[in-house]
Amino acid sequence: MKDLLSSILELLEAVLYEPIRLESALANLSEKSLNLFSWIVLIPSSLSIAVGATYLSPPYSSGSMALIAVAFFANLSMISILPMILGAVIDFQAQKKQRTGNVNYSYNLCRFGIGIFLFFAPLSILCRETGLTGGVGYFLILLFLIGYYITIISRGIQYVYDLKTSDAIRFSLTSIIIVGIFPFVFYLYASGSILHLIL
């Protein structure tokens, strides 16, 4: 158990602070271990977002637990799929700039970078104490964490694809904007299909 925790912390430290070490950290782990580690990161991150968002919206009732459960599964499904698409879009942009493809690195950088969303619940406590509740607090925290996420990804891809800082930030930002459209497209598709069945 101690070795497992040490490996996860080493991987997260490489992603969040020293992306230059991420390739060597990934090389020492099997795909099975990486998948296990990613769930160990994704599940608490999803729970942190769900709990934090509910905490920002008082008053609480018995239905708050159901709301947390629904939000948890919605967040988990979203943040487990989007890093895969995000990694592919970043790699595609880098290859268009005549860089050697490394989609595996991009994907792992994106999925383990999600670990910063563990801070959503603690930040929601801070926002609540300063009076920033409801949608205002939620979007402020989300914007801050997404900005931090873009910074993490930019630093990682700048190293692995040998990009200028401006290109790395542009690739990260445009990729997140492109990927961010997918949930809305899916929502519109699902809504349209349901309306079509009803009408």
Rank of each mutant, 00 (worst) to 15 (best):
S6D: 12
S7L: 03
S7Y: 08
E10K: 11
L11F: 09
L12A: 01
E13D: 14
L16V: 00
E18D: 09
L22W: 10
L22T: 11
S24K: 12
S24E: 13
A25D: 02
E31R: 14
E31Y: 07
E31D: 15
S33F: 00
N35M: 12
S38M: 11
W39V: 08
I40H: 04
P44V: 02
S45E: 00
S46C: 00
S46A: 13
S48N: 03
S48W: 04
I49K: 11
V51F: 12
G52P: 07
G52H: 03
Y55E: 13
Y55Q: 07
L56C: 02
S57I: 10
S57H: 14
P58I: 11
Y60F: 14
Y60I: 00
S61C: 06
S62K: 11
S64F: 09
A66E: 12
V70G: 11
S77E: 03
M78L: 13
M78C: 04
M78W: 01
S80P: 07
I81H: 01
L82I: 10
M84W: 11
L86E: 03
L86R: 08
L86G: 05
G87S: 00
I90E: 05
F92N: 01
Q93C: 10
K97V: 03
K97T: 04
T100D: 03
V103S: 04
N104Q: 14
Y105T: 05
S106P: 02
N108D: 12
L109T: 00
L109H: 01
R111F: 08
F112Y: 06
G115R: 01
I116Y: 07
I116W: 07
F117W: 11
F120R: 02
F120T: 02
F120M: 05
P122E: 05
P122I: 09
P122F: 08
L123T: 05
C127G: 02
R128F: 15
T130S: 12
T130K: 12
L132C: 04
L132S: 12
T133L: 13
G134V: 00
G135K: 12
V136R: 10
V136P: 07
Y138T: 09
I141L: 02
L143D: 09
F144L: 15
Y148R: 10
Y149P: 02
I150D: 09
T151P: 02
T151V: 12
S154A: 15
S154V: 05
I157S: 00
Q158V: 04
Y161W: 06
D162T: 07
K164N: 06
K164E: 13
T165R: 14
T165E: 08
T165P: 07
S166K: 13
D167E: 15
D167A: 15
D167W: 15
I169M: 04
R170P: 03
L173N: 01
L173A: 11
T174F: 13
I176N: 01
I176L: 15
I178F: 05
G180D: 06
F182A: 12
F182D: 00
P183L: 08
F184N: 05
F186V: 15
Y187G: 02
A190K: 10
G192W: 13
I194P: 03
I194V: 14
L195E: 13
L197V: 15
L197Y: 13
